[in-house]
Amino acid sequence: MKKIFITVTLTVLATAAKAQTIFQTGIVTAKQNKYQVVLKKENSKEYVSVRNINSQLYNARLKAPSVVISNPEIIGLKVDKNQINEIIKESLGPGLFQELLKNPKNFIDIDFRFGQDGLIKEVFFFFPSNLAITPQMIENIETRLKEKLKARFDERTIPNFNGPVYKTMSYIPFYYSLDSHSLEVK
């Protein structure tokens, strides 16, 4: 009886330790890429911000007419959110994916920077630190998103802009959050 109790205690400690040590502020390495990690505390909770060390747009301000701010409809941005969900699900594995969605406080935020060709220039990740996401998972998601995802834009010529709106932008931002709402996306 005593032996069983000790075993259970160690398991709990090991799990707790794993949840706290996947990411620390600094640089982590996956198979092909290195990532800058920053741990942040907001509202008394801890979050992880992850970006490829080669990124150049993380703190870059968007150069665009002010009318496009918070108006993605005028850009006519179309992104296949189901495809994003599928890529994340495949990269995390079904178990972790379900665990992520089970708790309504869990999420993975992805900040996309699309080029005018519709391809991803850069992506940045942000999620609660208690999620068991590894650097390799991040690399897999980033790689697959860049391979598979392509945004579309409204190609109509708008007189105010002398062309399609997206052509006026240095990059096209899109902020997506995978959480319990995301599977409602059709």
Partner: peptide, 28 residues
């Protein structure tokens, strides 16, 4: 939360902060 846009022209860092804040006051 699937598509916040108010901070479209801000840095990713601010966008993350805003997203976290809005989720916190709306219970996600």
């Amino acid at each position: 939360s699937a598509n916040y846009t108010a901070m479209d022209q801000q840095s990713t860092s601010v966008r993350n902060e805003y997203s976290t804040w809005l989720k916190s006051i709306t219970n996600n």
